[in-house]
């Protein structure tokens, strides 16, 4: 295969994964420049090992695995510590008086407006970013990218049983962080 053919095949098979891959990198590093570097590094590695990639197999899972390994082996050490999102700042939105009590119905209808949708997104992002990276990772892979437990086990190099237990603990943590928000929406536990 000529270099031109290899490059064309590489781009056709692997570049469509750029969007989810960049999002994954961002959720790991919490920094756009770091995500940029991590994704570039991942594609360069993938290019070097492209001969080992079986055409037609799961390109997305393959790239996610490479990116995860790069993140753990090299990137985590050299990258600057990501700024922790101050969760209490976001919480403040829901602790105002008008979310409480009688106005419950109004709150529900407000939920349909775009600005409140954005607030929910910010709230979820804040809670997620506050989780340890291992917990964040399984939630992103499962809920955002829709990988199966088996694919997650391969991407993370852990047994499926560990995927299950890690996801269990991760969701419990996330639930805890979102509890205040959930209460303000009427989902009391």
């Amino acid at each position: 295969m000529s270099k031109e053919e290899k490059d064309a095949r590489f781009e056709a098979e692997l570049l469509p994964v750029l969007d989810p891959l960049y999002n994954f990198a961002y959720r790991l590093t919490l920094d756009e420049d770091d995500a940029n570097d991590l994704v570039q590094e991942t594609y360069l590695k993938a290019y070097r090992f492209f001969d080992y990639f079986e055409q037609g197999t799961n390109a997305k899972a393959w790239l996610f695995r490479i990116l995860k390994n790069s993140f753990i082996n090299e990137f985590r050490k050299k990258s600057k510590q990501p700024a922790k999102v101050d969760y209490s700042e976001v919480e403040g939105y829901y602790n105002t008086d008008d979310v409480e009590g009688e106005s419950g119905v109004a709150t529900t209808s407000d939920m349909r407006t775009q600005s409140v949708q954005d607030l929910i997104g910010d709230e979820v992002a804040g809670a997620l970013n506050a989780l340890p990276v291992d917990f964040r990772t399984v939630i992103i892979l499962c809920d955002l990218e829709g990988f199966t437990y088996e694919e997650m086990a391969k991407i993370l190099d852990i047994p499926i049983g560990t995927v299950r237990s890690r996801l269990h603990r991760a969701r419990n943590s996330l639930k805890e962080k979102l509890e205040k928000y959930a209460k303000s929406m009427g989902y009391n536990s």
């Binding site: 750029l18 969007d19 960049y22 999002n23 961002y26 756009e32 995500a35 949708q117 954005d118 929910i120 997104g121 979820v124 992002a125 997620l128 939630i139 992103i140 809920d143 955002l144 829709g146 969701r171 996330l174 639930k175 979102l178």
Partner: peptide, 14 residues
């Protein structure tokens, strides 16, 4: 809980 992540977390523009 699953829906909050899958339905509300914003995707970052590449």
């Amino acid at each position: 809980l699953k829906g909050l992540v899958s339905g509300h977390l914003k995707r970052i523009i590449v």
